[in-house]
Design a protein around this nucleic acid. Structure first.
Lengths: 190, 190
DNA sequence: GTCTATAGATGGATAGAC
DNA sequence: GTCTATCCATCTATAGAC
């Protein structure tokens, strides 16, 4: 838990979030971790490995978070609400990591990139399936489920950019209001 | 028009879009422009200057595009529709530049950063003002206009990430369907 | 306005001692 | 598991000739 590898990961999340992956040097990470830069290489094979580790755990946790939020929920409309809420709240709770996951994809080489994109696709497909189901059930209006899902997910992901804990709204406020906005936008007019 | 400065800008847009700003070297830009790298510095003071030039013209054009789209349109609801449509279409027409403008802010130093953020704020405030007006007129439901505007703008900006000209949908399809989704999400339930 | 040549700095990564 | 020392590639930017 408090091992050096975790320390390196934790300070890297802070630094990548604050200054960006490319602007952060191994020496910055070492200094913030309290060791020499050569020692970083005992724990991680290279700089990209640190970034990949952050990406991987973030994506895995995000997906587990969604699954947990959806279990036991009945009805497409309620599932969408629950999914949106869990997505928004995760993007606030893990703000730094998801911000990195959205802005530093450029730091990954092909194989790692594919691994992450696959995980992301699987996650997004779960939202797409919900929207599609709602359209089929004629609860949602007849829109393009892919284009709509891209929009919805990006909108909810963006809280990681602008959310400030010191702001007027709690994360629950935001999660609920986005869930309502989305469901209203999706629903058929009577 | 076909001067070397424009060539440098054009190839830089391509390269920054394809590989990212940090991964693109002055030598890459020079090679793609058909000159030696030292010659690049005759046209631009440094690498950031090229990036800033791209940012600046993109933001100025984006704002002019919105103003043009709004002139003569009557009614808050119709203005929102027109604003969303113009935003989406601009983000498809100028896909590479807006993608850079959204992903490479890290490449700007403080002064340039502030200049761009100011322009962006002014632009976003125009959407916020529309949403606020709609709430006041009781056409839109009583939501937080700031949080909502962040979500809406990000959603519409994201077309620059995923749009492919080879896809099934035209840019007008997408622009209209986003405009409808947004207005439906904003409107008061009767 | 474009060239050749190179300065000058920095960054990732490795070797090998302890 | 962490250290010191260092290699080497790369990249931005400048000097000065043509």
């Amino acid at each position: 838990m408090a091992g050096m590898k975790d320390t390196i990961k934790r300070v890297s999340i802070d630094l990548f979030h604050k200054q960006g992956y490319f602007a952060t040097g191994i020496s910055d990470i070492a200094r913030a971790s309290g060791i020499q830069k050569a020692s970083v290489y005992y724990h991680y094979a290279n700089k990209e490995d640190i970034l990949f580790d952050i990406f991987k755990t973030t994506m895995v946790d995000l997906d587990a978070n969604l699954e947990r939020a959806l279990t036991g929920v009945k009805g497409t409309e309620e599932k969408v609400r629950a999914g949106i809420r869990s997505h928004v709240i995760f993007h606030i709770d893990r703000q730094k990591e998801v911000f990195i996951s959205d802005s530093e994809l450029r730091g990954l080489t092909v194989d790692n990139y594919k691994t992450i994109i696959d995980l992301r696709d699987k996650y997004e497909k779960k939202f797409q399936a919900l929207i599609r189901a709602g359209i089929k059930e004629r609860v949602f209006s007849n829109l393009d489920y892919k284009v709509t899902s891209y929009g919805i997910i990006t909108m909810c992901t963006a809280v990681s950019i602008w959310f400030r804990a010191s702001g007027r709204l709690t994360k629950e406020n935001i999660a609920n209001s986005y869930a309502e906005f989305v469901v209203k936008g999706l629903k058929r007019r009577k």
